[in-house]
Amino acid sequence: MKTSKKTIENEARRDFLKQSSVLSALVLSPEKAIKDPNWDEKIAAPFEKVPLKLEINGVKHTLNVEPRTTLLDLLREQLHLTGTKKGCDYGQCGACTVHSDGQRINSCLTLAVTEEGKKITTIEGLAKGDTLHPMQEAFVKHDGFQCGYCTPGQIMSAVACIREGHANSEDEIREYMSGNICRCGAYPNIVDAIMDVKKGGQTV
């Protein structure tokens, strides 16, 4: 089980240490902690962070995160799962699409703390070992990308598009894949890839 507990270093002393809640925490702290040169930061940190348990690509994580941290930034900056991309940070481009309990979501519009107890799947969790997921295979075969930056989001969305039952025709695919922008313009190939997987009938 992976655990990520980041220690905060070299920070300025904080105003809110003056607040009573922190002071009362100080009273309850063991003497050893108070002798630590960064004692104020160490005591303050837990007050800024909240515990979070979630499962990512089958791995359980116990984390402490700031409530303002998005799922996207948690994945990319803290867990180094950089397959999920930041394209706009406003929920307008779909590059950050991941699955949360099987549903496609924009991870940039999702505060990490709201995913407590959820199962997250990112592009890194789609293949089974060295065997690509049928959708990944189809994107390679149909050249469903150029620069590759929107690709993880497109693929996660495409898998969900089939699972949702929204891949019954090319036009339906176009509509239900329109939340994922591809500036290189690979759309026709993306539609072909999804149609191919849908017609192949493989479980996605």
Binding site: L81, T122, E124, V140, G148, P152
Partner: peptide
């Protein structure tokens, strides 16, 4: 097919 396709579809390509 692209030589870097596998890296791009698995999220392993690093920008």
């Amino acid at each position: 097919s692209r030589v870097d396709a596998q890296l791009k579809v698995t999220g392993a390509a690093k920008y």
